[in-house]
Simulated assay, not measured.
Amino acid sequence: MSDYSTIVVGTDGSKSSLLAVERAAKIAAVFDATLVIGVAFYEDKEQASQTLRQESVTVLGDETARENLESGKAHAEKFGATKVETTVRSGTPVQALMGIVNDFDADLLVVGNRGINSLTGRLLGSVPADVARQSDCDVMIVHTVNES
């Protein structure tokens, strides 16, 4: 395995996304890497309603996104991450994560598995599946929820 210098993880404030933050923080601590925690948010209800997928918690407005970031950062620091940066992005979770990965030239993207095995995820795609296809860096899909 190569060394990771920049790791990106997304959070929506949910318990399952914080499990992905925890895993990313532990990896960042081992590699003394920068951990970038990102939150995607929708500008308004109309933008959010245009997204049909239900695999992620809908974050409406950047104030909620910033609150989720603070929670994610504190959680990451509990698990050993010392170099933590945060960013919020308007748009879908996939758009936001891909933008963050590119902007920070990340080596690793960590996401939870929510939505990957759901019927909607299988038919329309899911955040973990979509980022795994689109990303130019390594992607770790963390088992954060049981789905049937």
Score class of each variant (00 low, 15 high):
E43P: 11
E43R: 14
D44L: 05
D44I: 00
K45N: 09
K45W: 08
A48K: 09
S49D: 10
Q50K: 15
T51D: 13
T51P: 09
T51F: 14
L52E: 11
L52H: 11
Q54C: 08
E55S: 11
S56I: 07
S56C: 06
V57F: 14
V59M: 14
L60W: 11
G61M: 14
G61W: 10
G61A: 11
D62G: 12
D62A: 11
D62M: 12
E63I: 11
E63L: 10
T64M: 13
T64Q: 11
T64S: 13
A65Q: 11
R66P: 01
N68D: 13
L69M: 03
L69R: 02
S71Y: 12
S71N: 13
G72W: 06
A74G: 09
A74I: 07
A74F: 06
H75I: 06
H75A: 10
A76T: 01
A76F: 00
E77T: 07
F79E: 00
F79K: 00
F79M: 06
A81G: 03
A81R: 01
A81P: 03
A81I: 00
A81Q: 05
T82D: 07
K83D: 06
K83G: 01
E85F: 04
E85C: 00
E85D: 01
T86V: 07
T86F: 03
T87N: 03
T87K: 01
V88K: 02
R89D: 14
S90C: 15
S90G: 15
G91N: 08
T92Q: 08
T92C: 04
T92F: 07
T92G: 10
T92D: 11
P93L: 02
V94I: 12
V94N: 06
Q95R: 15
A96Y: 08
A96E: 12
L97A: 03
G99F: 01
G99Q: 14
G99H: 08
G99S: 14
I100A: 02
I100Q: 04
V101A: 07
N102I: 07
D103M: 02
D105S: 02
D105L: 02
A106I: 02
A106D: 06
L109G: 04
L109H: 07
V110C: 09
V110Y: 09
V110S: 08
V111C: 07
G112W: 05
G112Y: 02
N113I: 03
R114C: 09
R114G: 05
G115V: 02
N117G: 09
N117H: 13
S118K: 07
L119K: 08
L119N: 12
L119I: 12
L119Q: 13
T120A: 15
T120N: 15
R122N: 09
R122T: 10
L123V: 08
G125A: 12
S126N: 12
S126C: 13
V127E: 02
P128W: 03
P128Y: 04
D130V: 04
D130F: 01
A132R: 05
R133N: 08
Q134T: 13
Q134M: 15
Q134V: 04
S135T: 02
D136G: 06
C137K: 03
C137F: 03
C137D: 06
D138I: 01
V139Y: 00
V139C: 06
